[in-house]
Design a protein around this nucleic acid. Sequence first.
DNA 1: TCTTGTTTAAGCCACT
DNA 2: AGTGGCTTAAACAAGA
Length: 443
Amino acid sequence: MPVLMSPDIANKLKEKWMLLHPEDQDNVSGAVNFDDSLTSLHWLQNFSILNANLERTPSSGCHPQHLFYHKHPSGGSDSPSSPPAGDTAAAGMPQTPGNLTTSCSSLALPYPHQQTGHYITAQANQAEEIDYKTNRHVKPPYSYATLICMAMQASNKTKITLSAIYGWITENFCYYRYAEPSWQNSIRHNLSLNKCFMKVPRQKDEPGKGGFWQIDPQYADMFVNGVFKRRRMPTMNFSHQRQSKVFSSPNSSYGSQCSQQISSNLFQATFPGVKRKQVFPKRGSKLARVTKSPLLTTHIKTSDVLRGDFDLASVFDDVLSGTDSTFEDLDINTALSSLGCEMESQILHGSSFKNEDEQACAYLEASGMMGCSMEELQQQQQHQQVVQVHAQYYEGMFTEQPQHPWEIKEEVQAIPLSMDHGYAFSEGFFPEMQLWERPESYL
DNA sequence: TCTTGTTTAAGCCACT
DNA sequence: AGTGGCTTAAACAAGA
């Protein structure tokens, strides 16, 4: 199974990491203290309560920025104290003098001013203070996705209404208080279009207008330090059921979300760089967007599988969620396994990476896509036995698989999970998760 | 009527 | 140059 690394892989990566970051030798006694900020969800927990992490100096260009948020002295909600570095979406925005944002490769850590809540960047000792809360002339250098994310987090609730998002933004960013209301259209547009945001329909007995919005758990790792982490990936023409991002009801089963999360992570881990592109039918054909799994409707030709010319993402979802389809429909298991092995091999040998940093980062990214940090990865290994139980459960299914000429025998093997299995699997996956990080917190 | 939500399109920018 | 992400604008539908 691609998601589970073998212990020697972890050891090799640990060695690599030590070569690259000898300063972490101090922590070598136990588990290596990998910086999993890029891949873990801890920032969500600490988003509003942490002050800037000034002690840490990134030693590699791939280190994530840390948290820049603190409680604003006035007002009950969290407000940003400085533009989060790495908000690539906001980078280059012409409206803001003295662009405070930066990319991963050119670090300019903004430091929050604890007393004033003003914005200070340490870039080239060029101190600038911009109080976006009171300065109506300067557009905050945050993308709308970031703003939405901020509002969601600041609300201290798992879901938030559109009007609450408006309210938080106008409360904390003076610019939008006086700006033309077209930005609200952009917010709505962003919520609808950005697959990272998920609509939670209002229950029938719930008064009020419109639904609630929350960050889609499967894309939570795209928000790092409260900013939207842009992922630029090569496109393969996958389609994806957009409906899967919308809960049919707030009481949707935890298992389905969980397995969805896992399937997404697995998909990303199995097909690194592959974006689950959504293909929307033309306007007015909303119902047409409710597509069935290709497994249910058509027989997939092997050639299509090999060239990726089918909805593999949907297949992945369906298979892992245990809905409707089985592996008897398609020997996707083999395909996933081989791809998973290829990924492992790439990570191990660094075949496609320019340097070791990239290699290490790719690993961290991959582990993050799997929904775990390095530490959690080691825990995953401990939970391998649990997973193997599930594998045995499905053994019969596996043994009935027809043996194709192209089938590659590997140890790693994708494991189909039903809802319940997805639940149990995730329980093993995220044993140390904080409340906000746990999928049930979204219910 | 207003708000909310969806969709399309165009322009700009960054990255490859 | 091609591609993708973000912003902005606009049209439209549905619901409160």
